[in-house]
Amino acid sequence: MTMPSAGALQGLKVIDVSRILGGPYCGQILGDHGADVLKVEPPQGDDTRTWGPPFLNGVASYYLGLNRNKRGMRLDLSQEAGRTTLLELLSDADVLLENFKTGTLEKWGIGYETLSERFPRLIHCRVSGFGADGPLGGLPGYDAAIQAMSGIMSVNGDAGAEPLRVGLPVVDMVTGLNAVIGILLALNERARSGKGQFVEAALYDSGLSLLHPHAANWFLNDKTPARTGNAHPNIYPYDSFPTRTSPIYLAVGNDRQFQLLCKVLGEPALAFEPEFQDAGSRSSNRLRLRDRLTALFQQFDGAALTEQLMNEGVPCAPILDVKSALEHPHTAHREMIVSMPNGYKGLGSPIKLGRTPATYRLPPPDTLDD
């Protein structure tokens, strides 16, 4: 466990009234880097407290993975007393982080326009499904539904198979990251102007932003992108391959890497055959290339081959399950697992700062009382 020290955001006060994933993930990142984050939950608690099993002391792993480095309290914002307390909390706060349905805070008399007049330096960040206006404005949005509607599912899965949800809440998490970026941008601007502003991170926008290179391809060729399984739509060999022992993933991005691959496989001349000698020809002739490479890979042990290829400068990797990835020695070296005395264990911050690294001071709130 990293020992407490001054974080990059020390002195920043955040009131986090968000729930589920995108907002809480944003708050956790701010907390990891030193912000004082107060998580305000409704009387029944954040829904994700019950999203299990597994549980630790009655609290679901889903909640635990998103809410460390926060103090906690319970507040009913639908009641005047709760709103009065929130206003007191905001009197010296820098950031309000929320993901209420559009119009809810306005109905309660604590919407952005009201709060900005009372607290002109406050940065009000809202995580929403579709934003406040437009054809879908104000509608609720969950990760999987946005994956479906933004086109992500349409390009995920095997060719000829049904569209497939990415097995991670990628839209929610990227929306949380975008909320962090927006808050930091607003803080930087406030240092010049002295004024806060409204920051919005919508799941729909974030889902669309993930469509690279599929959107870029469509802008140029007007062809609806199709599912390609594990293969990259633009370059090849960028795909999974079987070996004699275990599958590997190969990520060749240029001619030099392909030449090195062919040398390690014992077929250096393959790199210079006309149908495979450059990126465009390899992509156009990917089916023939896959057959040639698959035959060669059958001679090799997967683990030994990936190690040899990486040492030669060819990007590749063994295909690991979650347990193997978390137990990999490099995971420990990168300090990507956090443990605390109360039994909490979670993923560490991927954001590495030299002088002011992330610290892990508080486990997720195990009570709803401050």
Rank of each mutant, 00 (worst) to 15 (best):
A132N: 11
G151F: 08
Q147Y: 02
M153A: 09
I146R: 00
P140E: 03
I123L: 08
I123F: 09
A132I: 07
L139E: 15
G134T: 06
A132E: 14
I123W: 07
L139R: 15
P120Y: 05
I152R: 00
V155T: 12
D143C: 05
H124S: 15
G131K: 02
A144Q: 14
C125F: 09
L122R: 00
H124A: 06
V155H: 05
G141M: 07
A145S: 13
I152D: 03
I146N: 01
G129R: 01
R121S: 15
M149S: 13
M153T: 11
L122W: 02
R126W: 08
G131R: 07
R126N: 13
A144T: 14
Y142L: 14
I146L: 13
G141T: 07
L122C: 01
S150T: 12
G138C: 04
G137W: 05
D143A: 02
A132D: 15
G131L: 06
I123Y: 04
P135T: 03
I123H: 05
L139N: 13
R121K: 15
F130Y: 15
M149E: 14
F130I: 09
L139I: 13
C125Q: 11
V155F: 10
Y142G: 06
Y142D: 06
A132W: 10
L136H: 13
L122N: 00
I146T: 01
A148K: 00
H124M: 13
G134Q: 01
A145R: 05
A144P: 00
Q147K: 01
P120F: 07
G151N: 08
S150N: 05
G134K: 01
G138W: 04
R126K: 14
G129L: 06
L139T: 13
R126G: 11
L122H: 00
M153K: 06
S128W: 05
L136W: 14
D133W: 10
A148I: 02
